[in-house]
Design a protein around this nucleic acid. Structure first.
Lengths: 237, 237
DNA sequence: TCGTAGTTACGTACACCGTACGTAGTGCGC
DNA sequence: GCGCACTACGTACGGTGTACGTAACTACGA
């Protein structure tokens, strides 16, 4: 019987190769890379077991030898993306290091727009996620206080980055599978919103739209959000 | 031809009743209520067009007269949940008011655990969402600064609450459709995590797990996170 | 008042999904 | 060299969203 257990299972706990039987034709890395390739090129919704198997050049059900459930395929993808995190020797300035981490995560999500959708606390302990977490904690060594607080900070920053990038990408990832362009969608939604606001029922929203903020600098908004969170955690303030 | 347009469409922009033809058998509120009932009782994954139609007592395809795409059904659900937000006369203390808003949102998400999964910036402008936004801005009237900053604060708080509740619920919503219990899942994942940490490869993670934080007060973590964000936005600090 | 156009209602059908199950072939460990 | 655990994979089932066609109904313009 193959690995389709009726019990919960962590894919990272099962060995990639178990000695007996024919040598597996693909590695976990191969499979993850195939899925990531598809998701990058055609969007997350294009990642189906059949599609990934086809990309690998094997039968659909062969995939289930490697990946008991589709969810585990997602976990492989998130881990593969996490492997792109470039780690460094902590500088001693934990605030600067955490800012750098956050920016790197944001870049990662831009490179793989499907990542935010798969980023859930559930997939938190893949090998690369552990590597990443340990690195963050190392960066936070100079920060006083209990480890628990540091974990809180890391979680908070990750949450902010995910939320922010989700906003940034908006419908971009979803739009790939729609029959119309994102510009069309934004135009229609914008027109509707303007008509509602113009109705006069929402005076403060109207004021918000009326005020001219100058050129909107999303980058600055992001930076400000991070700084605010770091301030909130900085014991020197 | 029914409303299946090849153009993007905002469901709130189309009239519920268009005069001509037979009187529609159901209102948008009926449909939303049916979907919400199913999602509350059986989880979001149980909400299919067929299932909702059955709950209403009509044919599957009849639903498409009211809801051109499934996504719009989700939008109806989010709006219906948003209608449960109880608004009040702003107190004059914007920090206190925003805390109250955040707690209410959290309660809402506990009542409807599928909400965080559907909470995306895309569904941001349903009637009840606009009501909610306007109310938040009213609460923020005493706060100095441009409206843009206030919108940033609201977005940030919503993001925090969503992230936090997602963590809180963890696999709870997902677990409903799995053949094993959430306790089993947590046990297996916990055991795996412990084994990895015990390997010695992640000394700082090990330290984090080793330190005894006393009883973990999730409520306090939430409160602290909110306070930190409010601090970051408070011009008096 | 009556035809007709626009709507509602809904059954059928299609392409896709995740995956349970059974079977055949392969190669390591004893 | 035997046996068995493992890989490979075809078939099939029950589900999904939804395109399309048809029949019934109602409110409006003539």
């Amino acid at each position: 019987m193959a690995g389709r257990a009726a019990e919960p299972e962590v894919i990272w706990a099962r060995p990639e190769r178990s000695g007996r039987g024919p040598r597996p034709a693909y590695s976990r890395a191969d499979i993850a890379a195939a899925a990531v390739r598809i998701a990058d090129a055609e969007g997350l919704d294009a990642v189906s077991m059949r599609r990934v198997a086809a990309e690998l050049g094997c039968g659909t059900m062969s995939l289930y030898n490697y990946v008991p459930r589709k969810e585990d395929l997602y976990e492989l993808m998130v881990d593969a993306a996490g492997g792109e995190h470039e780690l460094w020797e902590p500088s001693g300035d934990w605030r600067a290091d955490m800012l750098r981490v956050a920016h790197q995560t944001r870049d990662l999500m831009h490179r793989h727009p499907w990542l935010p959708r798969l980023m859930s606390p559930v997939y938190g302990f893949s090998p690369n996620a552990l590597r990443y977490l340990e690195h963050c904690l190392a960066c936070l060594d100079p920060m006083p206080g209990p480890q628990g607080t540091k974990l809180e900070l890391i979680a908070m920053l990750n949450g902010i980055v995910t939320t922010y990038v989700t906003n940034e990408l908006a419908t971009a990832e979803r739009a790939r599978s729609l029959p119309w362009s994102q510009e069309q969608e934004n135009a229609v939604r914008g027109a509707y919103l303007m008509s509602r606001v113009a109705s006069g029922a929402y005076p403060r929203m109207a004021a918000a739209f009326a005020e001219d903020p100058g050129p909107i600098d999303l980058e600055a908004v992001f930076e400000r959000a991070l700084t605010r969170v770091l301030d909130g955690f900085d014991p020197r303030r």
